[in-house]
Design a protein around this nucleic acid. Structure first.
Lengths: 197, 197, 197, 197
DNA sequence: CATGAATGAGTTTTCATTCAT
DNA sequence: TATGAATGAAAACTCATTCAT
C-alpha cells in the first residue's frame, strides 16, 4: 500500500525468485533429475505452468540458478582483490570470502558445489567456471614466481586449497563440524601451510 | 574335472559384472536419476529384464556398486595400516593407497565420491561410510595427543586432508591435471604440511 | 451467478466418471489383471496419465468402483426396508430391488458379483460386504424365530436365495434368459418356496 | 521297483499332473492373469521351460484344467443318471453328486465356477459347457411335461437350482458355512421346493 | 527330456510441458 | 498474466516364452 505506482514488478520478481528458491532447495536435496517440475511449483506456491513463463525449461532453471549464484560468489571474491598482494593475504581473502558466502547461503554454495560439471549445464554456465579457474591459475603462477608458494603445478595447489575448503564445508553440511570463526580460521591456516613455499 | 570349483562363472558372474560396470560408467556420467535402466542394459549388452534377475531394483544396483567399491577401497587402505605409526607415515600410507585406487579405478573412485550421501543409498551403504569416518577421527585424535598434528577439531583436519585429495583427483578427471607420481607426491606434501603441528 | 454450487462439473467430474465407466466395462469383460490401464484410458477418451490424477493406482480404480456401486445397491435395497415385515414380503422387497438394479445397471451388478472376494479389494471394500452379510443373517434369524422360514442354518438360506438370484441374472448375461417381469416374479416365487418353512 | 519295464511314464505323468495341480491352486487364488507361469513352475517343482513341453501356452494350461475337471464332473453326474426318473430323484442325484465333487475337490469345483466364461477359454471348453446346459434344459422340459416342475422357463429353473448350489458352496469357501451332510441335505430340500410344481 | 537364465514386449506409473480458461 | 488439468512419451519393472546346455 506504500507504493501504488509500481504495478507489475513486485509479483513478477517475487514469482521468479520464489521459483529459483524452491528449485535451489530441491536440487540440493534430491538432484536435478530427482526433482519434478510440479514439485518446484508447489514449493514456490506457484502454478506449474507459471514456471514456463519465466524459464523455457527445467534446464533453464538450473542454469539460471548456477549463473546467478556463481556470479554472486565470483563478484564477492573479486571485490577488493588485489592481484599483487602477498599470497598469504590472497589466501586469507579467498578463504574468508568463500566462508562468508558458504555460511550466509549454504544452500547456494552446496548447489554450486554439487552441480559443477553436470551434463545439463549449458555453455554459458561452464564458461564462467573456466574463467574463474584461469584466473586462479594466473594468481598462483604469479605468487610462485615471487617464491611464495611451493613449486608444484599451479593446478595442484589450486585443487588442494579449494578441495580443502569444500571438504570443510561438506562436513559442516553433514552436521559433523560447526563453521565457527575458529574453525574457519583454523582451516585457513591449514590451507596456507599446505601450499606455502 | 580340472577345475571343479569354478561353476557359476560361465555367464552368471560375467553378466552381473557387466551390469555393474555399465551402471558405474553411466552413474558417474549422468547421475543415478539421469540414467535409465534400459541404458544400463544396452551398455552391458544385456536384455533390460536381465538386470532384474541380478538386482531387485535400480536402487539395489547403486548400493551394490557402492558397497563393492567402498569395501574394496577400505580394504586397500586398511591393509598393513599400523595404528601407532607416526602421523606423517599414516598420511603417506593413506595418500598413496587412495591415489593408487583413484588411478587404477578412476570411475569407481569418482562414483564413491559423487554418491556419498545420496537419498537412494541404503542403511548398509551409509553405515560403511560412518564406520570409516569414526576410525579416521580416532587416528587423528591419537596423533594429536602425541603432538604431531595441529590442535584443531579432528573432523576439520580430516576434512582438509580428504578434501584436498578429492580436489586433486577431480582436477585429474577434468583433464586439468595429470596424476603423475610427482603430482601425487606433491599433493601429499601439501596435505601433510596442512595438518602437521 | 445462477448456479453457484456447481463448480467442479465442467470436466473434472465428467472425466472421473468416464474413467470409472470405461473401467467398469473392461473389468467385467476381461477381469482386473486382464485390463491394461491405457485400455481404460482409451475407452474413456482420456490420456493414460489422466487416470492417475483421479486415482492413485489401478487398484484404487477397482475399489472406487466397488464402493460406489456396492453403496448404491445397498442403499437401494435398504430404502423402506422394514425389519419386522413378514419374510415373504422381505424376499419380495429384496428380489425386486436387486432385479431392478441388475436390469438398470447390468454391468455394475456383474462387476460386483465377479469381484466379490478379490485380492485387490481393500479393507473398506471388504468391510461393506461383511456388514451386509451380517444384516442378512439377522433378518433370517428373526424370521426363523417367527417360524416363517425353514429351521436350517441362516447362512444356508441366505446362500440359497442370493445364489438363486445370481444364477438367474447370470443366465441373463449370457443371453440365455430374458429378465422380463414374469421371469423375475417366477424367480421370486422359487426363492420364496425354497426357504419358507 | 515292482515294474521296471515302464520307463518314461511315471515322471512324465507326474510332471504334467504336478503342473496342473499347481496351476489349479494358483488360478483359483489369484486368477488367470494374476498368476505368472514361473510361479506355476515353482509350485510344481518343475523348470519353467518344462511347462512348455506339456502345454503350448499358459492358455493351454487353463483349458486343459477346465476340460479335465469339467469332464470329470460331467461323468460323475451322468453316471447312473436315468432320464425318466422322477424330477425329485433327479434333483437328489444332481445335488448329491455335485456336493460330493465339491467336497472332494473343492479347488477344482471353485476353478470351474470362477472360470466359466472367461475370454481365455477355447471353443472346446465352451462347447462342453453348452452341451451340459442343453441336456439340463431337456431334462427340465421333460419333467415339466410330466407336471412335476413349475411351468416357468426351463432356463430359469435350471438357473435357480445351480445358482442355489453355487451360493451354498461359495459360502463354504469363505468359511461361513460348513458342508456337513445335514447342510447339503437341507440345501437339496430348498432347491427341490424352489422348483417343484 | 528337463532346465532355468535370458529376453523384449508389455505393464503400471511418472513427469516435463502445453494450453484452455 | 497465471493457472493447473491434461497429456503422451518415457520411466521402472514384470512375465510369457525361448533356447543353449
Amino acid at each position: 500500500m506504500a507504493n501504488p505506482s509500481t504495478k507489475p514488478r513486485p509479483a513478477t520478481i517475487d514469482k521468479r525468485d520464489a521459483i529459483l528458491d524452491a528449485a535451489l532447495e530441491l536440487f540440493v536435496d534430491k538432484g536435478f533429475h530427482g526433482t519434478a517440475v510440479p514439485e518446484i511449483a508447489e514449493r514456490a506456491s506457484v502454478g506449474a505452468g507459471t514456471i514456463y513463463r519465466y524459464f523455457t525449461s527445467k534446464e533453464a532453471v538450473v542454469n539460471a540458478l548456477y549463473q546467478q549464484y556463481k556470479g554472486e560468489l565470483t563478484a564477492l571474491v573479486m571485490r577488493d582483490f588485489s592481484l599483487d598482494a602477498p599470497a598469504k593475504q590472497l589466501i586469507h581473502h579467498l578463504w574468508t570470502r568463500l566462508a562468508d558466502f558458504a555460511r550466509r547461503k549454504p544452500r547456494a554454495y552446496a548447489f554450486l558445489e554439487l552441480h559443477h560439471h553436470s551434463t545439463y549445464l549449458d555453455e554459458t554456465s561452464l564458461a564462467i567456471e573456466r574463467r574463474i579457474l584461469d584466473m586462479g591459475v594466473r594468481f598462483v603462477q604469479a605468487a610462485q614466481q615471487r617464491g611464495e608458494l611451493k613449486p608444484l603445478p599451479p593446478m595442484l595447489l589450486l585443487a588442494i586449497v579449494t578441495g580443502a575448503f569444500v571438504g570443510m564445508v561438506r562436513k559442516a553440511w553433514e552436521g559433523l563440524l560447526e563453521l565457527t570463526p575458529e574453525v574457519i580460521a583454523g582451516g585457513e591456516t591449514c590451507a596456507w601451510e599446505a601450499i606455502r613455499a
